[in-house]
């Protein structure tokens, strides 16, 4: 199977309004209605005054969204767990600095995205040394992926093709810079607005927009390379 099989050509190209968007995964814990927001504000204030119960309630409101993001970005449960822990420990330590200038959701995501960016940067510098070998047909195989693979699977064919597609996409994503990867992740997979993404990454909406554009360009090139 080649990366060509990843390409889809929708029937109509001119219908902008009907463009396909990925399944949007909003944050499970994001407080959207006014009463929930008021409760959340109370919780934050109580937590700022030292209430561990209130802090625990905040954790439970956001931790699934945090894990979902970290899991998808890192592709590793262990890394996601580490990021979850570090993010909420940081939030606990610095909650006193939160001054309601942005939503709590944006604030906690800012912590998480910073931790993820650090991890992606560390990983990128490691991957530079990663060994690539050729298999019997002369194609490149990623040894590390092979080594860490589970060796048994319930439905080998389906599992293999699903895994193959996922791996090709991950490879293409891995070639982005950590920042491009993050903007693409937050936009495409987490369905966030570019303005919010800008706020989370401490940058402007315009910069987030340009980064997204660059990321889509690179991804197309990267997927085309993976034939």
């Amino acid at each position: 199977m080649s990366a060509e099989s990843l390409r889809f050509f929708p029937p109509s190209s001119a219908q902008l309004s009907a463009t396909s968007t990925p399944k949007i995964q909003s944050s499970q814990g994001m407080a959207t209605d006014p009463s929930a927001r008021a409760t959340e504000t109370d919780l934050i204030r109580e937590a700022q005054q030292g209430s561990r119960t209130a802090f625990d309630a905040l954790v439970r409101q956001y931790d699934q969204a945090v894990l979902r993001l970290a899991l998808h970005l890192t592709g590793s449960e262990q890394d996601a767990e580490d990021i979850h822990q570090e993010a909420f420990l940081k939030a606990y330590r610095y909650l006193g600095n939160f001054r309601f200038e942005c939503s709590f959701y944006t604030w906690i995501y800012r912590i998480v995205t910073n931790l993820c960016l650090d991890l992606l940067r560390r990983r990128k510098s490691r991957r530079e040394d990663q060994a690539v070998m050729l298999d019997s047909s002369g194609e490149e195989i990623d040894l590390l992926t092979n080594v860490s693979d589970q060796r048994a699977s319930a439905n080998p064919d389906r599992e293999l093709s699903r895994k193959f597609l996922g791996e090709r996409i991950r490879e293409a994503l891995d070639k982005l810079t950590p920042r491009e990867r993050m903007v693409f992740e937050l936009k495409h997979y987490q369905g966030l607005k570019l303005r919010t993404i800008g706020e989370m990454l401490n940058t402007t909406e315009e910069t987030a927009k340009n980064t997204l554009f660059r990321a889509t360009r690179k991804l197309r090139a990267n997927l085309a390379e993976l034939r």
Binding site: P10, Q64, L67, H188, L223
Partner: peptide, 21 residues
């Protein structure tokens, strides 16, 4: 670009397992 968007969606966003949570 539309094709890319569809292709990228083949890497699903999985919910964290109850165990992981």
């Amino acid at each position: 670009v539309q094709a890319l968007s569809k292709a990228m969606s083949l890497l699903p966003v999985e919910e964290p397992s109850a165990n992981l949570i």
